[in-house]
Amino acid sequence: MSVEIIKRVEQLLPYHDLKLISQGAEALVFITTKHPYLPKNYKSLDLSTDADSSKYIIKYRPPKPYRHEILDKQITKSRTASEAKILNKLTILNFKTPKLISMDAPHGLIIMEYIGYDLNNGDISSLKNHLWLLEKQQESNNYNPNVANDASVESLLKMVGERLGELHLYDIVHGDLTSSNIMLIKDSESETGNVEPTLIDFGLSSYSSLSEDKAVDLYVLERALISTHPVYATQYNEWMLEGYCQAYKAQKSMKRHVEVIRRLEGVRLRGRKRSLLG
């Protein structure tokens, strides 16, 4: 199955080297070292695109054999287009996310900037991998000293909350928040090499001003943290929500914050899906 899909991408992008890094139900994600249209020695005006690292992300939505062919084409195209549009929108808003480089919506392809770096153990710098690495260290240290819930983790989780708050203040909901959909990037401006979190994978994102949708976003992240980091989740969530509150405070929108949190309590009681019984 997966071999067939990879053959398809190779046919669509015969000149790209492809390294599969993630495979979900909806899409496959590859790393490539080739820019789709810029020559190798070209230095972009856009200085934040680090041409030397020359790594790019290819996201491919393969045809789904369980859907009707015509419907499948429409769905693939519209989801790819919607993801690209949101990425572009966020770039315009100065919200840090991977930048859109190229796309082929009818074939379900998006090529975007690679962000992130390699962790000490060689894994990609998602929040999940980062925290797992720290948690493992902590366990082998016999829980002493506290590397998995020290001040740097605290500030990281707070920043996650802030980013999410900022996103929600733009009336965009992420739709699929997990700790692997949060990438850590090294802040190029700070000399200490501070890492900061960046939200990625806007494949299920949409525009919404409803507190309900924002509350569900928070709830999904909460549950994801509980299942991927069971030992420390309570603490992580607390920090994350603190940061989330900060973002609203900074915009003087505490009224909206109160509403989302009230909703969140309701969502926690009933789960992600709204009751259809009215």
């Binding site: 934040s48 770039t91 315009i92 930048k99 859109l100 796309m103």
Partner: peptide, 23 residues
């Protein structure tokens, strides 16, 4: 309102417009 005099950012916006054309 999205106009900016920051050329690298403006460049990114123009490329976005081209890539999203027709969707």
């Amino acid at each position: 309102d999205t106009f900016t005099e920051d050329l690298s950012k403006l460049n990114r916006i123009l490329i976005g417009i081209t890539q999203l054309k027709g969707l």
